[in-house]
Design a protein around this nucleic acid. Structure first.
Length: 504
RNA sequence: GCUGGGUUCGUAUAACGGUUAGUACUCAAGAUUCUCAAUCUUGCAAUAGGAGUUCGAUUCUCCUACCCAGUACCA
């Protein structure tokens, strides 16, 4: 029985999208359930799109979620590995593995599975544009390759010379003209595609001496002994090429099994989830806040007040279900119950309301002490210095009203400072002289407000709401007794008198 | 356009040929309370359409529609 080894292979071209986090999570869960290894491999073969800081952001994000690699790179860029005595799989950054890819590409050429192509990017773009103008699609394949500039169409001498003198050539996969590629996907089942519809993908570029995704991916998955490839659905169209590459290398026996995950879609309308949707509808699409080179920031789940447990839980439930009615899962529970055959095939529209609900549930699960500790800095931002014991008490009273720690403040600022103004509508409704007279008397004389008011046969609602108006500045909020138990009788009476000044 | 994938309440999903099609979020109503929130109860709401296979289709097959992805010297 070979050890399960899966990898998450992000490209450091920007912040990690929450869909990417989910892919990493599923890989992690799958590995941990089987006692296997979870590997992070950085696919930085696109030198043009490289973004400084993106790699660290990705690792930091995963760590925040509790997803830590057995092998790969850590947040400081150092190598993490399971086999401490040897380094059979390092390095984990493809740019640092540069030297190993060329020979594999050349091997394919030697065996007739690939060829050298000398067409310039401009020439190809032009060909594409011309085809499009005629309503056709240009495709570099068995049909067109004889008419293009490559080692299959050019004389041997010229090829030789070009290889030596030019640095602007590539190695392309020679996609068979008519092969029915039969594939199996752990989620989608059996899929067949005829190779005639596929194109001759570039595998390796002489210009920067770097492989493209397809070559690097297959070579590294093989070298790193990956057993399952769990990735986004956008890769499904490339699967036939990947199958053929395994065949070309003669690695079919150890070819990993594949699982293509459904995409995360926007909450409303059509299309995949994008940063714009988040901005428009007020939710983050990134795990952590990200600031790009232009200085523009994108909000993150962490900064928005989500607990990592909640974020992980809600992500896990997007496209997977346990087959039971359980909705709340710790990471360990997810590891125990995760299964690829419970992953759905169709894309999942993200639901911000449900995300918020998850955080609320996790917030209620936390102790008052822990929440108070988190609330203290928020209070400080509002210029409030409160002692921990008091905050613990307050949090216990208001936690049911909040989805996020930051809500504690908006829900009941009056537990820390007197209202500075009154909500117009409530003032008119409850702040009448008659109500105030009763409220003041009750506050001055009663031991137990409720009993006193009842004894006087005053209208409970009117008196209580008038007092509430004085204490909170509005017509809704905590129970009067609860508020007074926090702010104290003297402060409460003072606030009622302040309201009195306003009314008279 | 072509190739591939997909389609159950508004959303996430359950039901792997036989159920009054279940659950959660959202929303609405009621109960409760000094108000609001919370809580509890109830409710609204779905098998895209059409053929077939079958005693019986959400489930299997085909067609149509719609959605998504890919179609780069990007991943």
């Amino acid at each position: 029985m070979t050890k399960t080894r899966v990898r998450f292979a992000p490209s450091p071209t920007g912040p990690l999208h929450m869909g990417g986090v989910r892919t990493a999570l599923y890989n992690y869960l799958f590995a941990k359930q089987r006692g296997g290894d979870f590997i992070i491999r950085i696919e930085d073969t696109d030198s043009h799109r490289f973004v400084p800081g993106a790699e660290k952001y990705i690792i930091d994000s995963l760590r925040w979620c509790g997803i830590v690699p057995d092998e790969g790179v850590d947040e400081n860029g150092n190598i993490v590995q399971t086999a401490s005595e040897r380094h059979p799989h390092a390095p984990y950054r493809q740019s640092e593995r540069k030297s190993i890819y060329r020979k594999y590409a050349e091997q394919l050429v030697a065996q007739g599975w690939a060829y050298y192509a000398f067409d310039s990017a401009d020439a190809l773009n032009q060909a594409r544009a011309e085809a499009e103008a005629q309503g056709r699609t240009f495709i570099y394949n068995w049909e067109t390759r004889q008419n293009l500039r490559n080692s299959l169409s050019l004389p041997e001498e010229e090829v030789k010379e070009l290889l030596e003198t030019s640095t602007d050539w590539t190695i392309r996969f020679k996609m068979p003209e008519d092969r029915c590629v039969k594939m199996d996907d752990l989620i989608r089942g059996h899929v067949e595609v005829n190779s005639s519809t596929l194109d001759d993908k570039v595998l390796w570029k002489r210009s920067d001496e770097l492989p493209t995704y397809h070559l690097a991916n297959i070579v590294d998955d093989h070298l790193m002994e990956i057993t399952e490839v769990i990735r986004g659905e956008e890769w499904l169209p490339s699967l036939p090429l990947h199958y053929l590459l395994y065949e070309a290398f003669g690695w079919q026996d150890t070819m990993p099994r594949f699982a293509h995950l459904p995409l995360l879609l926007k909450p409303v309308g059509n299309g995949k989830l994008s940063k714009r949707d988040g901005d428009k509808m007020g939710f983050p699409v990134f795990p952590l806040q990200w600031t790009n080179a232009e200085g523009e920031s994108s909000r993150g789940y962490r900064e928005d007040g989500y607990f990592p447990e909640a974020f992980v839980n809600l992500l896990a439930m997007l496209g997977w279900n346990p087959g039971t009615e359980q909705e709340m899962f710790t990471m360990q529970e997810l590891i125990d119950s995760f299964s690829l055959d419970k992953v759905s095939k169709s894309g999942a529209k993200f639901n911000p309301d449900k995300a918020k609900w998850y955080n609320k549930e996790y917030l209620r699960l936390k102790s008052d002490e822990e929440l108070a500790g988190l609330y203290l800095p928020v209070l400080k931002e509002h210029g409030i210095e409160a002692d921990l014991e008091y905050v613990v008490k307050v949090v216990g009273l208001i936690k049911d009203r909040a989805s996020f720690v930051a809500d504690f403040w908006t829900v009941a600022p009056y537990l820390f400072k007197a209202p500075e103004e009154y909500v117009e509508k409530d003032l008119r409704k409850f702040g009448t002289p008659e109500n105030y007279a009763m409220a003041l008397e009750a506050m001055e004389k009663a031991d137990n407000l409720e009993e006193y008011i009842r004894g006087k046969e005053w209208p409970m609602g009117k008196v209580m709401n008038c007092i509430r108006l004085a204490l909170t500045g509005c017509g809704s909020g905590l129970g009067i007794a609860e508020i007074i138990s926090c702010i104290g009788r003297d402060e409460a009476l003072r606030r009622v008198q302040v309201l009195g000044n306003k009314i008279q």
